[in-house]
Design a protein around this nucleic acid. Structure first.
Lengths: 245, 245
DNA sequence: TTGCTCCTCACGTCACGTGAGGTGGC
DNA sequence: TTGCTCCTCACGTCACGTGAGGTGGC
């Protein structure tokens, strides 16, 4: 019989058959006068057996070996089963992550395990594109430096502050929108209002301390995004914190 | 910072970073005097975000687009979720098949859905290597031509015959071991004993009829494996069946 | 003469892993 | 001088899919 009938009967494509010829898995059959391959029923049987092995996930490179002794597949099957188990676990976690991201309306550029906290830590309302980019990158860095427990305690504190009527988002927006040439009394006011919010955070037991490496990187990152007025705000906060410390 | 620190902080390999450079996903950072790449904290943040996207299964080719707008991933996530669901189903079926094969001690060159029947349809006891190969290939062909229901009814009939004390395996072994030059009374005897077993099978309602194509292929396959004495047995059975039909 | 089927290269897939071979800093 | 770290090619992975370009049978 010719290629396409053989392929149809075995449930594979013609290209698959030729691939098996190329790698020496299925022997080349004789050719008829016009050069077409002429397969026998035994060839079909071999192809069907190869296909069964392949469907189970046995690598083609192993199949030539086990065609002769199909019972010698125990180790292979164990390995494939373990791999399948691991893949299923990974894919299941992925589906869980996607569901968590959707439920929290979070974007997938942060680990889904933190999806619950992202909206709490993002400034609500109109923020410039650069401001949003800045917050995203800060959160991305924090996601590598702060444990899930740490996020939990930060989020709790922020929720408490919001419940206490603090105007967090308003303050953030004012900070992010602070122009380079803002007058001194404007940026000073922002620094002091921020300090009032940060003080209880910094003294809280649950607040996660950052390692030196993380702190340095976050600070370096801030400097690339913030203008001189915003940097002065942060410097002023450090000053105030040191004098209170 | 240099490549390996960046890789460590982001949880990827150095090669991964360079791959992202190659495909233009992560911009090349400036080089320090010795030619080493010198990354900023912003680069790290971008890499972390890329890694989060990639972990979710978003193709690298799409990530450059969604880095700017991470919320525009809904269609992608839907697609990935569906793919994950399908993959999980496939892998789960694979694990089920492996378990079924093991429980029935069946070899994986036949579909696992038929694992229960294979031992019933294989000749027990000592059979030559060629005989076993022949049976394997016949079963492989049958697996494509007979539905699961068909296998079920064949298996039931064979079980009934065995329960009735028929010496199926003994007869099969004698047939498979029949030498080319077997005397007439020997192969005639085998043909008649087989006919006694086949008669009720052929008349049974549940016995699956093979299409012309399937029957022709199975018969062609038999001829490539059987010697002249064995072929005479089959021819004699056809004769007897026709005269009874 | 026109489709249709078969054929043989040979590149593309996807996200990197893995050497090969070379160079700068302690 | 000897490791160690960084660098740039460039091939390999896995099982085919997908054209490109050509030929024989109705």
């Amino acid at each position: 019989m010719r290629s396409d009938r053989m392929a149809r009967l075995a449930g594979v494509t013609v290209r698959t058959i030729r691939h098996y010829h190329q790698i020496g898995l299925l022997p080349e059959p004789p050719r008829s006068a016009n050069g077409y391959r002429d397969y026998s029923a035994a060839d079909l049987a071999t192809l069907v057996r190869i296909h069964s092995f392949a469907e189970l996930g046995i690598p083609l490179a192993e199949i030539s070996r086990v065609l002769g002794d199909p019972t010698a597949t125990d180790d292979l099957l164990t390995q494939i089963d373990e791999q399948a188990e691991a893949d299923i676990a990974r894919l299941t976690a992925r589906r869980r992550d996607i569901a968590a991201l959707r439920q929290n309306g979070a974007a997938p550029d942060l680990p889904a395990s933190l999806a619950r906290y992202v909206s709490l830590m993002t400034t609500a309302g109109s923020v410039s594109a650069e401001g949003m980019q800045y917050e995203r990158e800060q959160l991305a860095l924090l996601s590598r430096f702060v444990s899930v427990d740490g996020w939990e305690s930060i989020a709790r504190t922020l929720e408490d502050l919001r419940a206490a009527g603090e105007h967090l988002d308003d303050l953030s927006r004012r900070f992010l929108a602070l122009p380079e040439d803002a007058p001194e009394d404007e940026w000073r006011a922002i620094a002091e209002e921020m300090m009032i919010l940060i003080a209880p955070l910094a003294s809280s037991e649950g607040f996660p301390p950052l390692g030196d490496e993380a702190a340095a990187l976050l600070s370096q990152h801030q400097k690339t995004f913030l203008n001189s007025a915003q940097e002065r705000v942060l410097a002023r906060i450090t000053e105030l914190a040191d004098s209170q410390g």
